[in-house]
Design a protein around this nucleic acid. Sequence first.
DNA 1: GTGGTCTAGACCACA
DNA 2: GTGGTCTAGACCACT
Lengths: 247, 247, 247, 247
Amino acid sequence: MSPVRLQAAHELVLEQIRTAILLGRYRPGDSLPPERALAEFLNVSRTTVRGAISILAEEGLVEVKRGRGGGLFVRRINVSDSRMRALLEANRDRIREVFEFRQTVEGASAALAAQRRTPGDLKEIRKLYDAMEAMKSPHGMLPTNPEDSAHFHSLDTEYHLAIARASHNPWFEQSVVLGRIEMFRPVGALFNSLDTTGDYLHDRILQAIEAGDPKQAGRSMTEHIRTTQQVLEGWIAQASPNRVEKQ
Amino acid sequence: MSPVRLQAAHELVLEQIRTAILLGRYRPGDSLPPERALAEFLNVSRTTVRGAISILAEEGLVEVKRGRGGGLFVRRINVSDSRMRALLEANRDRIREVFEFRQTVEGASAALAAQRRTPGDLKEIRKLYDAMEAMKSPHGMLPTNPEDSAHFHSLDTEYHLAIARASHNPWFEQSVVLGRIEMFRPVGALFNSLDTTGDYLHDRILQAIEAGDPKQAGRSMTEHIRTTQQVLEGWIAQASPNRVEKQ
Amino acid sequence: MSPVRLQAAHELVLEQIRTAILLGRYRPGDSLPPERALAEFLNVSRTTVRGAISILAEEGLVEVKRGRGGGLFVRRINVSDSRMRALLEANRDRIREVFEFRQTVEGASAALAAQRRTPGDLKEIRKLYDAMEAMKSPHGMLPTNPEDSAHFHSLDTEYHLAIARASHNPWFEQSVVLGRIEMFRPVGALFNSLDTTGDYLHDRILQAIEAGDPKQAGRSMTEHIRTTQQVLEGWIAQASPNRVEKQ
Amino acid sequence: MSPVRLQAAHELVLEQIRTAILLGRYRPGDSLPPERALAEFLNVSRTTVRGAISILAEEGLVEVKRGRGGGLFVRRINVSDSRMRALLEANRDRIREVFEFRQTVEGASAALAAQRRTPGDLKEIRKLYDAMEAMKSPHGMLPTNPEDSAHFHSLDTEYHLAIARASHNPWFEQSVVLGRIEMFRPVGALFNSLDTTGDYLHDRILQAIEAGDPKQAGRSMTEHIRTTQQVLEGWIAQASPNRVEKQ
DNA sequence: GTGGTCTAGACCACA
DNA sequence: GTGGTCTAGACCACT
């Protein structure tokens, strides 16, 4: 039996808000809901919300502006590629582990989704797919400026979550969410500025789910995640051999 | 963002102890560690442990004996088959969901274990397998008296967890643990008296892991869990059509 | 330990402005800096400045004129001698106390000033002395019309503060300022119209400081303040016996 | 006009508590009143008190112990003589200034006290004097172990404050308090462990006040403070010439 | 019976 | 209409 850790309410609130940001629901520059609204959503007092916010502000993930027109804002963080690479490389094992897990659970989710998706699920998934398509350049390139890239990243997250929801099994939903958060955790919010998304096989996944073909849906999703992992690992390795990092 | 729920310390302690019992680490008749030891393991005060214990005692899962030779004992609970069936039937969906999840993550765990198991892992897994074999009757029947059945159940749990550990990926380990706890949760401690274990394909799984054959290991594990599920669902359905339940 | 009292921002602003007026830095008829400037000096928002101003306006110490050529103006207040006497008499003890304190700290300040004054200090003190001399009538009488009287009063304050500064000890400076503010506080702005200044021994103080004679400087200053006190107390007592006050 | 600083309630509370400790009203090892009591004395909410306490705890001036028998405790801090000397030397000017001020205001306080002391004042002053005498060794030496030294220091403070109160002029009282706090501030609570007290002329001051001789009382007090200053400055200078300080 | 935390509500300063 | 702070009261965990 392992030691129990008393979770303070403000820690739970912290986690909720941080997760929402890491998942891209609030993007750099966006404003979070005002304190009073957060308190109501989360069913805690404003004091408790403030406890969480003050930690986020200290971490630099959120910026607090006062007065009318003020509020809570997600900060835009720029981090050099080399610094990012160092962080990712230091977490290489954890990244490998989470991608392995994601291949399994997201593959299975997609297969279940192909069997159980309701019309509403399909509509939601296609809407997100179309929104991503609409952001591409005429030649099929992903957006490159930071703002749009972050938006694309956020749509991609919602796409994966929508598929997980269509599995109609809360265990898979939950696992997909946790895996996705973990993927972004190693570098905290910094990751926002990196595009690891790609949309490899997004179309094949969608078609398989629409066609109700679980085998194909599962295979495509697993393949998609494997590809993403390879792209990310390639990017990390890129400058590593002769990298000279000061601290 | 969803409402946060504050976990009281005694609730966390309660959950830890209940989980340990449900996983079979402490079987009916066994004594739990004394309060002081629990308080130390769990890093809380004795007051808090006592709060949890008193709830467990009220639930009837644990019995508190005072004086010399006293302590905390796991109670043996007998519940009628019909009552058990009603409880399980009421949770049929949750049971289906968790088995679906277990098929996926335990299958993948077994496949990874086949690739990565160390000699130590193999030794541990085989030891548990052998212990289970040793409990069978000459004709390969599982033990039937409650005591031995509970022991068998406990060995089975450890067998699954050892395979999950051999995957050397904490995500799978964690998922296997959670899935296994959940499997037993719907009926609380009552489940202790029911044998749903079976050992269908235990040998095939072990052989595949020893042989380093991930495909076969994964398939066997998935199959094993599917079979267990079918046995359980069959048992539930058995008396249902003409069941007459009062209350 | 005594109860703490929370000072609202607008109260602090109020105090600052009132003090500046009571010390004679802004005299009747003068205009105060515009709201925006005050807000900037005081490092608060305009809202807060406005809160303070509105109180001062209600008290009648300040007048707000709108439109072009408008602004904040210190009002000239006339109060009957008998009303003034009543106010002072009600505060007789506090007046005695503050004069006692002033004798001590201003005496010591003057003595230190005699030892430590820089050429710049001397120049400043003499400039203020000369300005006061220039306002006297040919026969050495103090100015009598309200405007000039207020100006003289303001020069006198600066003279005392300049000597305190020349002590080059912040504790004495601070004490002189506080004592001087307090001397004027009992009767609020009304005191502006009363001339209690006198210039008894101003010349002797200056000479002693210039001569670098601490003993003489201290004695003269102490004497000067004692005299001022006596004049004030005499004035208060003057009509008291048969005073008939309607409200 | 200078920027106004909004004093938060917890800052005021902080100041009150810190002052009480610096003045020796609570000595190392003593417990402060419990949070709830402080909140009541200070007429603020417990939340506010806690804000102040958490700062004191971070500073290391106070230690918080939980559970029954817990509470707020003044920490005993030991600082090497050389470190203390460095701190004091860095604040040499501020120390000189405050002693200059103390000579003036405490001298004047003592003189006034000689004229105005009530029987109650005399009794109080003598009681403190006797308590100090009782702590001396048979040969008139001050106590040397840290505990008693701190106690002696605390009695000495109360002795000075009692004389200031006997002046029956709040300006002098307040100045004596501020000067005394400032004397100890440069090195924070560390000073607690240093004995700068001495009791030079304590007897002469008491006799003059009892005899109602203001001149003698003032002179003795001024002399007493001058001596204390010289002793302190001698102690600072002692090892300075060839001091080798790391950091 | 202590400190640790949360709640619900309020008022204020800010822009 | 936002965040910043305080209040009064409550419950909990600790020792």
